[in-house]
Structure formats: C-alpha cells, structure tokens
Amino acid sequence: MPLLKTENLGITFGGLKALSDVHVEINEHELVGLIGPNGAGKTTFFNLITGVYTPTEGKIIFDGKLMNGKKNYQFNNIGIARTFQNIRLFKGLTVIENVKTAFHSSMKYSPFSGILKLPSYWKEEKLIHEKAIELLRVFSLENLINENASNLPYGQQRKLEIARALATNPKLLLLDEPAAGMNPSETSELMETIDIIRKRFNITILLIEHDMNLVMGICEKIFVLDYGMIIAKGVPEKIKSNPKVIAAYLGE
C-alpha cells in the first residue's frame, strides 16, 4: 500500500485550473522528486497535501486514510511535515524554541499541570529539551541553540526548518526547494543531510527542486509537473531523456 496516494486530484482558483488530474503514488521510504517549470503547480500540490488548500476535485489518501476536508494541523498530526519555499521560521524565537514548539503534539501534559508545574510538566519538558538537542546535533546546530533563529545564516535556517519539521515526527517529509539560494558546496552538504535524515529517521521524503544535480543525484523517483498536469514519472534516467520533459524545460 502506498504511503501517499492522490487520485484525480485537482484545484481551481476562480476560473484558473492550477492542478488537474494528478495521480501520484509514493511508497514508504522512497525519496521522490517533484520538478517542473515555474508556475507548474508544484507548491500548490504541496499546499494540497498539507491541507493549506482544500482540493476542488479528487482524493488524497495518506496511510490508508482519506484526508479530504481535514485541517492543516491535522495533516501534520497524522504524519505529514513540510518546509516552505521562503523559509518560515519562528524568527523571534531561539533555535531550540523553534524545535521545541514543533514537539507540541507529542507532548501530553494538560494546561493545568503546565500552570502548577506538576511532575509531568518537568518530566516532559526535560525529555523534549534532550530530544531537541539530539535532533539539532544531527544538523550540527547544537552549539547555536540559544541563538535567535533570524540571526542564523541562510543555510542554517534551512536546516533548522527541516529539523523543526522532523520534530513533529512525520512519516512523510515535504521539502519545498531546500536548495534554493544555496551555493554548490552548501547544496552538496544538503544532499548528504537529506540522505542522513532519511536513513536515520526512516522516513519518506518528497522534495521540490530546481537544482537538477540534486534531484537526479539523490531521488529514486521523479514526477514532472507542467501546467498543472503530471507529464512524466519514473526513474531519473528515464526522465532525463523524456522528450516531453525536455520540451517543457527547454521549449520545442
């Protein structure tokens, strides 16, 4: 059974068909790339499968559950975490607070024990503190935990955003242009990081990317979107030589 399956998925904004007839299947532990020219509907697709938009047609099935009509935060609670194209950190908070905030749903204590600082509060807060540091260590951010998120350099902000997404303990991680604005050495470092987190956290990853080296280098499967439709899917080698893809990217 695929982890994420969309059937006939589509959305229209007013008269504009942003996405139509999208069939996608992503299996567990896969690393999948989603590519396409600007305005093809990649981020719209992400917004649909994270509940930001409600699809006007079709179905989203995640882990065997029909997700249509669920709210944004429910998508996350069920196991889909994401990063954003323009980084969206909690800028005024420190690095560790960013991550701790994301542990919210995995913590159980009630407002009451939070106010009275009952043992369950101390126990869970301590556990989360350790877990957050452990997670930040994976991204070599453990020395910056008390730094304001907005003070981090760009590359580390990206990493922190991924760390924050992972803190919600997702089954599927969506990365929206993780390499945007990075130089080649940062990009290759990012490729390693993605590989590490996938193995270490044992999760499925779907990423949108324009950097072809990154996509072709690490993805096992690629979907190509153009004008809101999937025009090709398959392994990287096949995608590279697919005439439709070449036409979409280079023009005929």
Binding site: N77, R88, T101, H104, S105, G114, Y121, E125, A165, T168
Partner: peptide, 29 residues
C-alpha cells in the same frame, strides 16, 4: 508566566510568530 513557559504558551507564541508555520507543525490555531 507558567502558561507562557509551557507547551501551550509555546503554541501561543508560535501563532504570533507565524500562523502558517505554526499550523504546519501541528498546532491547532
């Protein structure tokens, strides 16, 4: 003070910082 330093307070502050990001990490706004 206690509320602000609990997970509930962090959720409240996250909403101030960025509503979309707060929802994306599973906070019921």
């Amino acid at each position: 003070y206690s509320i602000i330093h609990s997970r509930h307070g962090r959720a409240v502050i996250a909403i101030r910082e960025d509503e979309i990001a707060a929802e994306s990490v599973g906070i019921n706004i």
